[in-house]
Design a protein around this nucleic acid. Structure first.
Length: 398
RNA sequence: CGGGGUGUAGUUCAGAUGGCUAGAACGCUUGCAUGGGGUGCAAGAGGUCGCUCGUUCAAGUCGAGUCACCCCGACCA
């Protein structure tokens, strides 16, 4: 862990962002350009996001599934606009085997192991999913079909930034198929509202929604709607999209169903997604010059208890602090008890502030005499002495 | 894809005009003290100086090539 300070926002907003990611131990650069390692603390935030958003997605009648990482090149090429939009950022698998290199220096691609048809590593999964959908859907009774998946995708970006734009990222992609254009459009807009509600209620972010311009819309879509949040530097960040695909993909993937009148018809489709970019939005919107600030709803650690003791009162303080821990554990989960005794209290205060733990509780012999504990909120950094008898009420609504 | 920059210890870096038996800070290990806002002292571990070739008595340092990464712009979740 780095021990250096954090560049103030005012001085260099971009560097401040990178510092927060580093000092809060959310992610670090990997040996692969543009692809980051999401560290345990950062991944825990993603898991919290997933957990709540997945619940909301399923509430909309979606079922989760998994489609392959590899997409045959021929599938990918079918929708003209789609291929045009993604062609320049695709990673392609051309071989399936390595061999020892002739000079003995290592391994090289085995030229005899060339694939007959190259495979595209999914930049998004419309094509591979819709090929499958064409076999799943035959009747109006099969509609609507609502499928979601939580996966990684690869887009070979020219320039990358942690969480905001990485060459591989994690996301959910929802794909729905409907009988009518109206129903499909309704889905597109309702999902947009779901994202907006999620942003407000879980991420504490206010967002704007709107239709994207012709040049900004998803490759192959009729229309794209975006969810945008305002960042501290005054720029807006698009973190979610919902696409009205019309019948564009249905026609090229030959998804057809027999309607109630017995006629063969192409269905109407929607696709929508949010990614690990949301973590970038979280960082940029709430954090300050002291480090990360997280809404309790997604914080991996909601409360940290720091016992403060000297050699003489160590046992008393630890016992008392554990009592507080047990009391609070009945109310909430994810409490960290920081009794590492090779670190000073000041170091710990700083460390948990950098990581954005919403509530810090300090307990020393002084507090024990008064039957109190010091509580510090991460967002405002306000300190308050709270009586032990009522302490669980304080954290109840986290 | 255009522009700029950097490769030396786990990390961030210093090593003008070649003389290095390669340093610092932080981190790490051990011990003692300390403990209410990044603790102090002591001892210790840790490096084929990105890679290749060249110039030279001598290359971290100079030259050529090569690979990689970072940053700034245009594009995207």
């Amino acid at each position: 862990m780095s021990n250096k300070g954090i560049t103030p926002r005012e001085k260099d907003y971009s560097q401040w962002y990178l510092d927060i990611i580093d000092r809060a131990e959310l992610a670090e650069n990997s040996p692969v350009r543009g692809a980051m390692v999401i560290k345990p603390y950062g991944y825990a935030i993603w898991e919290n996001i997933q957990k709540e958003l997945d619940r909301r997605i399923k509430e909309r009648g979606c079922k989760n599934a998994y489609f392959p990482l590899f997409i045959p090149k021929s599938f990918f090429s079918r929708e003209a606009e789609h291929v045009k939009g993604f062609a320049k950022e695709c990673a392609i698998v051309t071989h399936y085997r390595l061999r020892e290199s002739e000079d003995g220096s290592g391994v090289e691609v085995d030229p005899d192991a060339k694939l007959d048809e190259e495979l595209i590593i999914r930049p998004t999964s419309e094509t591979i999913m819709y090929d499958t959908f064409s076999r799943w859907i035959t009747s109006w009774r099969d509609l609507p079909l609502k499928i979601n998946q939580w996966v990684n995708v690869v887009r070979w970006e020219k320039r990358t930034r942690p969480f905001l734009r990485t060459s591989e990222f994690l996301w959910q992609e929802g794909h729905t198929v409907h009988e009518t254009s109206q129903e499909s459009l309704k889905e597109v807009l309702e999902v947009l509202e779901m994202y907006k509600g999620f942003a407000r209620e879980v991420l504490a972010l206010e967002t704007l929604t709107g239709k994207k311009s012709e040049s900004e819309k998803f490759a192959g879509a009729v229309d794209t709607f975006g969810v945008e949040a305002m960042m501290q530097d005054g720029k807006s960040l698009q973190f979610g999209t919902s696409h009205d695909l019309g019948q564009n993909f249905a026609k090229v993937f030959n998804i057809q169903f027999t309607n109630k009148e017995g006629n063969l018809e192409y269905p109407w489709q929607a696709s929508w997604g949010v990614s690990t970019r949301m973590i970038g939005a979280l960082v940029m919107s709430h954090s300050d010059d002291n480090g990360l600030v997280l809404p309790p709803s997604v914080a991996p650690i909601k409360v940290v208890i720091i016992p403060i003791y000297k050699e003489g009162d160590k046992d008393t303080v630890l016992e008392y602090s554990r009592g507080v821990l047990n009391k609070l554990s009945e109310k909430i989960e994810n409490i960290e008890f920081d009794d590492r005794d090779f670190l000073s209290p000041g170091y710990k205060f700083n460390e948990w502030e950098k990581k954005g733990v919403p509530i810090r509780i300090e307990i020393g012999s002084r507090d024990i005499e008064d039957e109190k504990a010091i509580i510090v909120r991460r967002d405002t950094l306000e300190k308050e002495a709270v009586s032990i008898s009522g302490i669980e009420n304080y954290v109840e609504n986290l």
